[in-house]
């Protein structure tokens, strides 16, 4: 079975999630593709600060308990922040869906290899306390069904995606300061 491209996987995720979900996307191509596929004010495109999407999302999830926080990481940024993985369980966070788009590459910097192929993110997150951990390799329907029906508890999905890249995807054209201020308006619980 051939793997989904990252863009296809992001398209499926963004069409299956709920309107009031808060989405934090990691630096590089992942934020660009989320912006290209489905720009929304409750998306936080984290350009720069690689590895910080999960801890930032966790702080948001702690305060905004009635909303689901979805973190879209890459395998490189997930490897950079393995130390954050035990925290959601420790803090008793359930409104947290952590997704890794795993192509085995640092594609945004010129497709250097990561070490993700020699480890198992599903096992790692399971042992770090995620209640549900999934691995998706390929099938479009499988990913759609999973995202649509994923339990409302601490969950992780590793999606193996192809190394194809759509070069037409533009940079995120919104000023970081604006990304912040409009996103903040979605965090209502004072």
């Amino acid at each position: 079975m051939s793997l989904l491209t990252r863009l296809e996987a992001i398209e499926i995720i963004m069409s299956e999630i709920n309107d009031n979900d808060l989405v934090i996307s990691t630096t590089g191509m992942i934020s660009r593709e989320v912006f290209y596929i489905k720009e929304r004010t409750s998306n936080f495109y984290m350009i720069g600060s690689m590895g910080l999407a999960s801890s930032f999302g966790l702080g948001i999830a702690m305060i905004n308990k009635s909303k689901r926080v979805i973190v879209l990481d890459g395998d490189g940024s997930l490897l950079m922040s393995l130390n954050t993985l035990p925290l959601p369980k420790y803090l008793g966070i359930s409104n947290f869906l952590h997704i890794c788009l795993d192509n085995g590459l640092y594609q945004s910097t010129g497709s250097q290899k990561t070490i993700s192929n020699s480890l198992d993110f599903k096992l790692i997150t399971k042992s770090m306390g995620y209640e549900n951990s999934y691995l998706i390799e390929g099938n479009q329907d499988e990913l759609s069904n999973l995202i649509r029906s994923i339990p409302e508890s601490l969950s992780f999905v590793n999606i193996k995606v192809s190394q194809d890249q759509n070069l037409e995807v533009p940079r995120v054209s919104i000023e970081p300061e604006i990304i912040s201020s409009r996103f903040s308006e979605h965090c209502f619980e004072k």
Binding site: L52, F56, L58, G59, I60, M62, I63, N83, S184
Partner: peptide
Amino acid sequence: DVAIGIASGFSIS
């Protein structure tokens, strides 16, 4: 840096 990430999540909320 993880502490800064978490605290920033509080701030934006």
